[in-house]
Design a protein around this nucleic acid. Structure first.
Length: 973
DNA sequence: GCAAGGACGTA
DNA sequence: GTACGTCCTTGCA
């Protein structure tokens, strides 16, 4: 086996400088590098088809956009000039050329071609391949193997030199003075002026090699730097140790890029005349066409030039100068052609078409009731290496529901349903016993555990967190996992949540609804009451559809550059959330009961008072009745109507009335507050206490918020009151069990900090750097008031403006919030833009982006889509504009805390700290720790949270986390 | 029994 | 002005 990797991007750049001047085709499009590239591909296939011809081959390109190196070291490749103008249109053409030669063309956003090549090279070497990398890039020399299993091949044409020049260990030693495995250590020291890798100032290749050969490696050298004789050199090394380490990271190639196409996908395909000649003729490459025609024994005249790429000799677009029009039309066609045609995108489209065409056959599903059938099913999974799984249970709460059946699907169209908990109809207390013929649940789980816990077998689910939690209660720790819901969320946001919607949208298939199977309303049967054949059809369909969706959606990750988001944020977060949900939080029933009584009494008194003031009895909970009393019967001024024509009676309206001397308004406001607290919190929360654990287990929705935040429901523990005194009493009911304490750690002003970073607002950054009160600083800038002795109202206004900015400010909204004139609010905004100049640019950029692309992006590459960004409805359009300003800010902050959560458990463990992460409230994490260990836990928690953006993104503002420990949530907060 | 609207709790 | 979830009433089936 022999893998040939071609450094496509490297070739283009080097060829551009090495090759003779431009050649153009008849419409003026420069194609010199494309021609050289085609010649090189031809030559390679000719010259290497000697003793060990390549059996596998791919051309790798740099994707546009940033990589992790830019985040690690913003100056990386920063001084590199933009690509020459003649080169730009040739980039997509080299991809087309690659495909014309029937060779996979691979690029991945976020990764350099070198990283992808390193990944494939190592992957292939480990499988015993011989690997050739067609490149002369010195950064790839670190991959060269002493035994010759990985070699480089320089293919750039150079006068007076052979066309192909091998680079093995000897050539590497000539270049770097060390063996290939030490190349990165040398590069870390000597740096690279072309790529702007800093290295250690004053140390060149020779010195670097000498040092590395003396000390062995970089870390040893840095550790023993004191021993170096030359004082200047010693000094430089000690001072720049960190720079050297960063440099080493920059030059070290990633060997674990999550490539989507495995080695089998790189098997060499024979050249196809029908792919090749239309391209070559469109490019007008006469001589290589002739040579290949001879080689393939084909007649080029049988093929027409590819109309998408050919010189356009037809009538140009009216009104435009002919030449440039022709050129731009060609470019536009290219742009449109390249995206769906490129490797990963084409693969995704083909997979979609393939999977969509396979019909669902309910008769093909199998019910497993014997140990032999179960073994066959397991053997199939082991053989396949991945399996779609769906667990069926008695309910929707993963902390309560009992397992009824498990369904597994290894091939599209197939599914094995294993019933374990179907019950005979019994009385209210159950007691009917299990339906006969089912395998014992313990036996089934023991057997399945082998595959569900096997690290080499991927378990695919839809909302797999649910299945993980249920199985965890039966002692099965399912891993690793993939989740079609999360893949869809990374790609498309919460738009197609739910398997029914996904199946309908992507597979054009309507799944059986649970209502159709089990009835609706109060007569709905729980899953254990269903008869097994019907249950099997439903369950197997779910597993089958999940597998189909995985085949359709997973390739889109690479094609649409969402792999990093999914792999580094969404996928690893799911098990973390599963554990948080399983832990739950302790809630003191007594406290809530006492509060409930208190609130009830006070609400009743207010109700009587309201009836008195209104002069009649009415339902205080009815905005309709209240509006009629206030504005019709009492004839009060200042009423406004809602969009449905009803009187508006919101808290702001009532607050206005109260200030104008309407006592009833105040009474209603107070009553509403108390009944809200009672109904939503003190009465409802105790009903969520799980009888098995004695704790409250919320459920986190990982894939339902547009911006990337989590949401919490049943119960929502992300809106526990905090603003009012009565509200905070509810927080005192969230407690740590005996011997433990709660820690609350929250990000300080995370969204404003993110804004300062994204929009690059120096004044804000400076203020955060100096640890100032950010709202007071804003007020001082805006209103020319010193921070010392600032009136609280001035600060309040500035705070409202800061929040307004984050929300995509409008004069209307700000005026509303502050109770001031529209014109005054408009002046405030104007002043703000003047004092913080970058803000306006940021806002305009997001608005332009969302209109052009239909989406905006967080700093971690999460796309937030707005399909109606160009809506004809002006208010809808303004809404999208504001949301597109807010989304990258809210979303980047959400990404940061997600990253912190993923890293938290391993870091706590590493630090030897026992701390259970229980809750997340957007910018706050709640932990439970043994009493007395809080001082060990807090620094670790803070450290993880404050550095959570790194190394993917190096923020240009400090992140600050405040953390406190106490026996209850109110005091810890 | 269900959906929509209004109101209000959080970040 | 952003992002959510829950409770209650209302109106219709």
């Amino acid at each position: 086996m022999h893998l040939l990797l071609v450094d496509g991007s490297g070739y283009i750049f080097r060829a551009f400088h090495a090759l003779p001047p431009l050649s153009r085709k008849s419409d003026g499009l420069p194609v010199g590098c494309v021609q050289g590239f085609c010649n090189m591909l031809y030559k390679l296939t000719q010259d290497l088809d000697g003793d060990e011809p390549p059996t596998h081959m791919a051309v790798i390109f740099d994707a546009k956009g940033k990589t992790f190196r830019d985040d690690l070291y913003p100056q990386y490749k920063a001084q590199r000039p933009p690509a020459p103008e003649e080169l730009v249109p040739q980039f997509p053409l080299t991809r087309s050329a690659t495909r014309a030669f029937s060779i996979p063309s691979i690029e991945m956003e976020g990764w350099e071609a070198d990283d992808i090549m390193a990944t494939y090279a190592v992957m292939a070497r480990d499988k015993g391949f011989k690997v050739t990398i067609a490149s002369s890039d010195k950064d790839l020399m670190q991959l060269v193997e002493p035994d010759g299993s990985i070699r480089l091949l320089d293919t750039i044409p150079r006068p007076g030199q052979p066309p192909l020049r091998w680079i093995g260990p000897d050539e590497v030693f000539t270049k770097f003075g060390v063996t290939p495995d030490k190349v990165i250590d040398v590069q870390a020291l000597c740096g690279d002026s072309v790529d702007n890798v800093p290295g250690v100032p004053g140390i060149g290749v020779k010195t670097a090699a000498e040092l590395i050969n003396t000390y062995g490696d970089l870390e040893t050298l840095l550790a023993r730097a004191e021993e170096i004789k030359q004082p200047a050199r010693r000094q430089k090394l000690i001072e720049n140790a960190e720079l050297a380490r960063i440099s080493k990271t920059l030059v070290t190639l990633e060997q674990k890029v999550p490539v989507e196409i495995d080695l089998d996908g790189l098997v060499r395909q024979p050249m196809s005349p029908s792919a090749l000649f239309p391209f070559l003729k469109a490019m007008e490459f006469a001589s290589i066409t002739k040579r290949l025609a001879t080689l393939l024994e084909a007649n080029p005249d049988d093929f027409e030039p590819d109309p998408e790429l050919a010189a356009n000799k037809e009538s140009p677009v009216p009104g435009a100068p002919q030449k440039s029009t022709t050129l731009s039309v060609a470019k536009a066609k290219l742009a449109a052609n390249v995206v769906p045609g490129s490797g990963p995108a084409r693969f995704a489209a083909e997979e979609h078409a393939r999977v969509k065409a396979i019909p669902v056959n309910y008769d093909a599903y199998e019910i497993v009731t014997t140990p032999e059938a179960l073994e066959r099913c397991i053997a199939k999974i082991v053989d396949k290496g991945h399996v779609a799984i769906d667990t069926e249970t008695t309910g929707l709460d993963p902390q309560m529901a009992d397992l009824v059946g498990v369904c597994l699907s290894t091939e599209i169209g197939e599914g094995c349903y294993i019933p374990v908990g179907h019950a005979k109809p019994g009385d209210l207390l159950g007691g009917g016993g299990l339906v006969e013929g089912q395998l014992p649940i313990g036996f089934v789980l023991e057997a399945l555990k082998r595959v569900l816990e096997d690290q080499s077998i991927l378990k695919i689910g839809q909302n797999v967190k649910y299945d993980m939690e249920v199985l965890a209660r039966y002692g099965v720790a399912m891993a690793p996992i993939d989740d079609t819901m999360l893949i869809s969320y990374a790609l498309d946001g919460p738009r197609y949540n739910g398997m029914d919607v996904l199946a309908d949208h992507w597979l054009n298939h309507k799944t059986i609804t649970y209502g159709e199977l089990a009835g609706t309303g109060k007569n709905q049967k729980s899953f254990d009451q269903l008869d097994i054949p019907a249950a099997a059809r439903y369950a197997a369909e779910d597993a089958d559809i999940t597998l189909r969706l995985w085949h359709v959606l997973k390739p889109r990750l690479a094609a649409e550059n969402v792999t990093t988001l999914y792999e580094t944020i969404e996928r690893p977060l799911a098990p973390v959330l599963a554990r948080m949900e399983a832990r739950g939080v302790m809630v003191d029933r007594q406290i809530l009961a006492r509060l409930s009584g208190d609130f009830a009494q006070r609400a009743a008194a207010l109700e009587a008072e309201a009836h008195e003031l209104a002069g009649q009895s009415f339902n205080l909970g009815s905005p309709k009745q209240l509006g009629e009393i206030l504005f019709d019967k009492m004839g009060l001024e200042g009423g406004s109507k809602t969009k449905t024509g009803a009187w508006s009676t919101g808290a702001d309206v009532l607050e206005d009335l109260a200030l104008k001397g309407v006592p009833l308004a105040r009474t209603i406001v107070d009553w509403r507050q108390l009944t809200k607290l009672k109904g939503t919190y003190t009465d409802a929360l105790p009903t969520y206490i799980n009888p098995r654990t004695g704790r409250v287990h919320t459920s986190y929705q990982q894939a339902s918020v547009l911006t990337g935040r989590l949401s919490s429901n049943e119960p929502n523990l992300q809106n526990i009151p905090v603003r009012t005194e009565d509200g905070r009493k509810i927080r005192t009911a969230f407690i740590a069990p005996p011997g433990k304490v709660l820690i609350s750690a929250d990000y300080s002003q995370i969204e404003l900090r993110v804004l300062a970073h994204i929009a690059n607002i120096q004044a804000l950054k400076d203020a955060f750097e100096e640890g100032l009160d950010i709202h007071a600083m804003t007020a001082s800038e805006m209103f020319n008031v010193p921070v010392e002795g600032m009136p609280s109202d001035v600060r309040r206004r500035a705070k409202a403006i800061n929040f307004g900015i984050i929300y995509g400010i409008s004069a209307f909204g700000l005026a509303n919030q502050l109770g001031i004139e529209r014109g005054v609010a408009g002046d405030y905004i104007k002043t703000y833009f003047e004092r913080f100049p970058g803000i306006k640019d940021y806002m305009d950029a997001q608005k332009a982006r969302v209109k052009a692309d239909g989406h905006v992006m967080t700093i971690f590459g999460r796309r937030i889509q707005f399909p109606n960004a160009n809506s004809g409805n002006p208010s809808e359009r303004s809404f999208v504009e504001r949301a597109s300003i807010n989304a990258p800010i809210q979303g980047s902050a959400a990404d940061i805390i997600r990253r912190a959560m993923i890293r938290m458990e391993p870091e706590l463990k590493k630090a030897g700290v026992e701390a259970d992460m229980l809750l997340q409230v957007h910018d706050e994490l709640i932990f439970e720790v043994p009493e007395g260990t809080e001082d060990q836990a807090i620094p670790v928690i803070k450290q993880v949270m404050e550095s959570a953006a790194e190394p993917a993104v190096r923020l240009t503002v400090p992140i600050q986390v405040d953390a406190h420990a106490a026996k209850n949530w109110d005091e810890a907060h």
